[in-house]
Amino acid sequence: MTTMGRILIYNGIRFVVLILLQVVLFKNIGYYNLTSSFPYILFIFLLPIGISNFLLFLIAFLTGLTVDAFYDSIGVHAAACVALAWFRIFFKRITLEIEVRESFDTPTWDEMGFKWFSSYIFFGCLIHHFVLFMVEAFSFKNFHYTLLSTLLSSIFTFLIILLISLLFYKRKSRLISK
């Protein structure tokens, strides 16, 4: 099997499993509507590093739209996922060497090291959840509530994503040194 085929299949499986987990399980977990978690964004985090910008935005947009269909909130998750895609490109540009940026590896915990991976996930969650809750509220009313919701939900999502990553963690050679 070619590398390209393997990447396609892995990402396809990841998409289906994460979206299913989101709408069946995580949609029902939360502390009233103050805190909820959206670990489906792990799919966008784990797309290959060297994916072209347009393709990244398109996939993020469609992922968001799929989740929106289940949440009856068309556009809200799509906007948040597009913002997350932008953050991904920005974060990649400021932290990675050119040759790593071009590679088609999956940016997992074992490839990138804990420090890089955890900050990548945490700030990504913050951006995604902030845009999500702002677009959902669509006003600056109760802004402190939106901020609190963003922060708590980000921590929640971050922990769940780390748990999921830990399940698939295997130590091997690193792309970048710690």
Binding site: F57, A78, V82
Partner: peptide, 21 residues
């Protein structure tokens, strides 16, 4: 190009939200 794609897709999403409201 990243910024322009971002603007394009984000505007589409917001349009969807507003039209929906």
């Amino acid at each position: 190009n990243a910024f322009f794609w971002f603007v394009l897709f984000f505007v589409i999403s917001i349009l969807l939200v507003v039209r929906n409201n």
